[in-house]
Simulated scan of single mutants.
Amino acid sequence: MKKIYTLLLLSPVLAFAHPGHITEGWQAGALHPLSGCDHLLAMLAVGLWAATFRGKARWLIPSTFVGVMIVGFILGAHGMQIPMLEQGIAASVLVLGLAAAWLKKVPASAAMVLVGLFALFHGVAHGAEMGAHGAFSYACGFVIVTAALHAAGFGLGTALSKQQWLLRLTGSLIGLVGFGMLFTA
């Protein structure tokens, strides 16, 4: 496991992969969140953080991310631009990783607002690269994989719930990668 974290920290930022991707069909949409560590780590962090909550918040937090990301996608596909988009995505990795590791006893509503804000950045980035033509099938692919990554993070967070030090290490390492991304965004 230590080798995986080392590789993540030493790897180049693979993800800032917004322009220049194949953007046709659901398969391209499904592959996009897996194509770089910015999307991958942010999605896993949402699931990790959701696993630290109780009750409905456990599914409302990732659902909020997916719903706002879809809205952001539509806005991005129709030309909306967000200043410092890449920095916002990098910040999502940093903040969501650290939130999963360290923020306890936060109101679920505050967590939902935070993940919603970052989801907007991710959605606009996806939509801007896709455009309005053929967006539906592409969006279906990335929404399905985003939800699956949230579920994987949730599963990991649940498994690590009895090993708080390991959960904190995992979230902190995700945050550290996000901190590094801020310098390359």
Rank of each mutant, 00 (worst) to 15 (best):
F136L: 14
L182T: 07
R58M: 13
L40G: 06
G180D: 01
P33A: 10
T184R: 00
A15E: 07
V71E: 04
S92E: 11
L85N: 02
S35H: 11
A128H: 14
S35Q: 12
Q81S: 03
W102V: 06
Y138C: 06
Q87G: 08
A91L: 15
S109Y: 08
D38P: 10
V115T: 15
A152L: 15
A185N: 03
P33K: 09
H18C: 09
V46M: 01
Q87E: 14
E129R: 12
L48N: 03
K162R: 11
G155S: 11
L166M: 14
L173F: 15
A100N: 11
L117Q: 01
V71K: 00
D38F: 01
A185I: 10
T184H: 04
K2Y: 02
A110K: 09
I70C: 03
G155M: 12
L94D: 09
G180L: 12
I82K: 07
A100E: 13
L40T: 13
S35C: 11
A15P: 00
P12T: 08
F136A: 13
A108V: 13
A139H: 01
T6E: 10
A132Y: 13
I89D: 03
P12S: 13
F65S: 10
C37L: 08
V93Y: 00
L10F: 01
A30E: 10
A110P: 00
V13I: 06
G175I: 11
I89L: 03
A30T: 07
L103R: 07
A50C: 01
W59V: 15
